[in-house]
């Protein structure tokens, strides 16, 4: 039994049901990536797994307990989430923002401890933001800022880390930088779960893929086993060819070219 599972989930925003009878299991110590077309319910599923959304029916279990029945701080010591949108308090420094990740480890009156200090310093070192520690977060580039948010989530020291579209709004080199970092964190033994848009990146980094469409879990498993032209067409309505990624050997999706070549414009 995996540490994080969802059984018979009905997920809905107010009256609009996004997914029903969803069963999902996040393999321990996997790098699980959830993919699917827009509005397929992938972020909704992630939010439910992170207890941000209470399922209408069914339950998310963490270590065998219904996640919403556990104390919130207790969950926050085992499972971290990097939401899609967060707010950077005006004028906050990198070190201060990362330090806020220690909240679930602190008590009402307890002062900043040595353990907090070590966790923050390690998180900043792992994400390579130590040299930025006194900078104002607002003034950083998008890639740097995302690394700072990751450091904040790392300072939380959770064995499971969920990331909701961590590469959105980043240019390609910063996307790779963030994903490489996630792969490092996975290799150190963390269970990582991410929602991604880019299929090729998903295939390259995931050890376990969850493919969704219209709130239904269409396929799951290793990228090489799951990713076929038929699946891509079924899920994304896209005809494609799949070749081996020349760098990693993982599936590389090449969308079919337009049938009619563009008529050259005469001058």
């Amino acid at each position: 039994m995996a540490r994080l599972t969802g059984s018979d989930l009905t997920l809905a925003y107010e009256q609009r049901v996004v997914a029903s009878s969803l069963n999902v299991e996040i393999p321990d110590e996997s790098f699980t990536v959830i993919i699917g077309p827009n509005a397929c319910g992938k972020s909704t599923l992630l939010r439910a797994l992170a207890r941000m959304l209470r399922p209408k029916t069914g339950a998310v279990h963490l270590d065998g307990s219904v996640i919403t029945s556990l104390p919130s701080k207790e969950v926050a010591r085992r499972l971290g989430l990097l939401p899609q949108t967060s707010i950077v308090p005006d004028g906050i420094t990198v070190a201060d923002l990362v330090a806020r990740g220690r909240y679930p480890h602190q008590r009402l009156m307890r002062q900043w401890s040595k353990a907090d200090e070590v966790a923050v310093a390690s998180a900043m070192a792992a994400t390579d933001v130590t040299s930025l520690s006194e900078r104002i977060v607002d003034e950083l580039s998008g890639g740097q800022r995302q690394r700072v948010w990751l450091a904040m989530a790392l300072a939380q020291e959770t064995p499971i880390l969920l990331l909701d579209e961590p590469t959105t709004y980043l240019d390609i080199s910063h996307q790779i930088e963030v994903l490489d970092l996630c792969a490092d964190l996975h290799e150190q033994g963390r269970t990582m779960v991410a929602v991604l848009h880019d299929l090729n990146q998903a295939c390259r980094y995931a050890t376990h893929l969850i493919v969704m469409r219209d709130g239904v879990l269409v396929a799951e498993g290793e990228p090489a086993a799951v990713m076929t032209p038929d699946l891509v067409e079924q899920v994304f309505d896209l005809r494609c060819e799949i070749i081996a990624d020349p760098q990693s050997g993982t599936p590389l999706i090449v969308p079919e070219a337009r049938r009619r070549a563009r008529t050259p414009v005469a001058h």
């Binding site: 919130s72 207790e74 926050a76 967060s86 308090p89 806020r100 909240y103 602190q106 009402l108």
Partner: peptide, 22 residues
């Protein structure tokens, strides 16, 4: 006494809840 949870909540409602703020 509310300084710490308000600090965590200042990062946004979801980030605050993810950090364990009630």
């Amino acid at each position: 006494l509310l300084a710490k949870p308000l600090n965590a909540l200042a990062l946004g409602e979801e980030a605050g809840r993810a950090l364990g703020v009630a």
